[in-house]
Simulated assay, not measured.
Amino acid sequence: MSISVHTNDSVETVTITIVGSFDFSLFNEFRDAYSNLGKVYKGYIIDMSMVEYLDSAALGMLLSMRNSIDAESSIELKGANDFIKNILMISRFDKRFDIH
């Protein structure tokens, strides 16, 4: 389980990549990934292509992120497998996030 952050200042985006289980054990690391950047970005991409497991704590962390960053900034949930994408859709996350 790990998180990596890559910023692209030329297009004002941040990519946060999550590897392994996305659960409560990543709470502080995930929050730090978007809140300690020093500036507001236009777009945040959560790369979930290597997420094997997601629990309700992860859903709460995503909602907390949505509430914490600028309302004008977009958040894209990208690369989730079909099982995780189904959880996101059932939870109606498509209303608050761009899911690809």
Rank of each mutant, 00 (worst) to 15 (best):
M1Y: 04
M1P: 05
M1I: 08
M1N: 10
S2M: 07
S2W: 02
I3W: 08
S4D: 12
V5W: 13
H6V: 15
T7W: 11
N8I: 10
N8C: 09
N8Q: 14
D9A: 08
S10F: 09
V11L: 05
V11E: 11
V11G: 01
V11S: 08
E12H: 05
E12P: 00
E12K: 11
E12Q: 09
T13S: 13
T13K: 08
V14T: 04
V14M: 05
V14G: 04
T15D: 09
T15L: 12
T15R: 12
I16E: 12
I16P: 15
T17V: 13
T17G: 06
I18F: 10
V19C: 10
V19L: 07
G20L: 03
S21W: 01
S21Y: 01
S21H: 04
F22V: 03
F24K: 03
F24H: 05
S25A: 07
L26T: 06
L26R: 02
F27T: 11
F27K: 11
N28K: 08
E29W: 02
R31I: 13
R31C: 11
D32F: 11
D32C: 12
D32W: 07
Y34C: 13
S35F: 07
L37P: 03
G38R: 03
K39D: 00
V40S: 05
V40I: 06
V40Y: 00
Y41V: 02
Y41R: 03
K42N: 09
G43N: 12
G43F: 02
G43A: 07
Y44T: 09
I45R: 09
M48Q: 00
S49L: 01
S49G: 06
M50Y: 01
M50G: 00
V51W: 01
V51D: 00
V51N: 00
V51T: 00
E52W: 00
E52M: 01
Y53P: 00
L54C: 11
L54F: 03
D55L: 04
D55C: 04
D55V: 07
D55I: 06
S56L: 03
S56T: 08
A57C: 09
A57D: 06
L59Q: 06
G60H: 06
M61F: 14
M61P: 12
M61A: 10
L62D: 10
L62W: 10
L62S: 14
L62A: 11
S64V: 15
S64R: 13
S64A: 14
S64I: 15
S64K: 15
S64T: 15
S64Y: 13
M65Y: 13
M65K: 12
M65V: 12
M65L: 14
R66N: 11
R66I: 11
N67Q: 14
S68Q: 10
S68V: 08
A71T: 13
A71K: 14
A71Q: 15
E72P: 01
S73L: 05
S73F: 03
S74W: 02
L77P: 08
K78W: 07
G79W: 01
G79N: 09
A80Y: 05
A80R: 03
N81Y: 04
F83N: 11
F83K: 15
K85R: 13
N86M: 13
N86G: 04
N86T: 13
L88D: 02
M89P: 00
M89E: 15
R92C: 01
R92W: 01
F93Y: 08
F93G: 01
D94T: 03
K95E: 10
K95R: 08
K95V: 04
R96F: 06
H100F: 08
H100L: 10
